[in-house]
Amino acid sequence: MAIQNIIKPENLVYTKSKILTDIPMHYCPGCSHGVVNKLMAEVIEEMGIQEDVIGVAPVGCAVFIYKFLDIDFQQAAHGRAPAVATAIKRLMPNKYVFTYQGDGDLAAIGTAETIHACNRGENILIIYINNGIYGMTGGQMAPTTIDGMKTATCPYGRNNEVNGYPLNITNLLAILEGTCYVTRQSVHNAGSVRKTKQAILKGFKNSMLGKGTSVIEVVSTCNSGWKMTPEQANNWMVENMFPVYPMGDLKDL
């Protein structure tokens, strides 16, 4: 069958969401941020909530997320996205409010805001991209860097005795009374992408049910910061990151 006969609107299976703008994403080739941005656009389009969703952008690689998703956004100071989202949600309880943060934002400078927003049980969705490194500033060690992982500021690998232990903040958030849904996902293959999409869908729905905070950690790659190809980075993540940050739901009320 000729390819022209297959490429017809009625045979369409998958295409770019309309919520995702045509501006080329500035992320490095193969970055997990792109996949998660795309999934959020798809979920927002499927739920039909483009007019009713407000995002809070972080500081980090995803700082320009407001250029890529055609929805309302507020940019927060470094790490303060959950505090800003708290205010937005309390003033406009009929809006879907989410934060999109990296590990340097959520688990380092924003630890206090994150833990207290979750402890208060704010009805927001927190999407947390954990690649174990400060990607935007040149690949320095983050609190989430795993034992033995080489970064710009620990070129011989992280030493737990000197540098402390990797901060597994998602496990901490799961034991708080205020959270209702805490899950850890990844986006390294088609199956995991679909699971993450379902998790984001659930997180958005939870934010309207008044059950508490939903936290979705996406264990991600930073192939530029890790000095690998995107494919090697995915394999390295499966081998080394997954034992420290295991996949699955930690809490689902």
Binding site: I6, K8, V13, Y14, S17, L20, M25, S32, K38, R194
Partner: peptide, 22 residues
């Protein structure tokens, strides 16, 4: 076979997939 695995993993949403039963 139009499984769309490529489109799911594409970080830049570059791929459009079509499928037809013959």
């Amino acid at each position: 076979v139009g499984c769309a695995a490529c489109a799911y993993v594409c970080p830049d949403a570059c791929i459009t997939v079509y499928k037809v039963k013959v």
